[in-house]
Amino acid sequence: MVTSGKGGVGKTTTSAAIAMGLAKKGHKTAVIDFDVGLRNLDLIMGCERRVVYDFINVVNGEATLHQALIKDKNCGQLYILPASQTRDKDALSKEGVEKVLNELSKTFKYIVCDSPAGIEKGAHLAMYFADDAFVVTNPEVSSVRDSDRMLGLMSSKSRRAEKNQEPIKEYLVLSRYSPERVKLGEMLSVEDVQEILSLHLLGVVPESKSVLNASNAGIPIILDEKSDAGQAYADIVARYLGEEKPHRFIETKRGFFGKLFGGK
């Protein structure tokens, strides 16, 4: 499950990238848009014109999962379950979500849930059944605070918490990071954010123009293998799957000037 509390920090970008990354590694993966009423995942995945049925239709029994799932055009292992554009968030229920997740887990290895912003119903349902949480945070005060609140909710209001099971595994995805600004003391550093949230860092995604380009084209950023953000997400998926990868995109790129003065 991909969450953040605060809106616009990169949850959908991250969900699309991680889902595609897992699928490209050969795992059968489904990605679900929980943002009922404001769906966007279909656009980021570039499948908006192929949406016929949605998540709510499946919950209500108006369509089968098979009918609603959209097979990704770039990767045969990846399927998208879009959110409804017309209903409101009350159309989702805990029982309905559970039923769909149970059915999906029969055939899919990974189910990536793209949470809406906020801490209300949609966000709660997206995190309730989660095993692992990718907490997308920007190096900025309100995002860090909202992530902390979200972490609190996960440890008290999730199924795992209520059933006294092992807690949700939480990973930090620090996005829109700008090493240059960190160096100038204008932006919280990765160490600062980690210290405040005490979370395991899965990866840092740099602020990158390529993210907008990718969303313009409807191609998950991870498929842009030349871009820094695409590589950052590839690292994140690899680390999630247990590979050891040194962290990148934390230091400023050393230019001629930096080398000359030996700055670091």
Binding site: R145, D148, G185, E186, M187, L188
Partner: peptide, 23 residues
């Protein structure tokens, strides 16, 4: 490099206090 009072350290300090309180 260090002469400016860093706004990031101010942010960190405020966050640490707030988050501890909210927890």
């Amino acid at each position: 490099k260090t002469s400016k009072t860093s706004s990031a350290s101010l942010a960190k300090e405020r966050l640490q206090i707030l988050v501890a309180h909210e927890r």
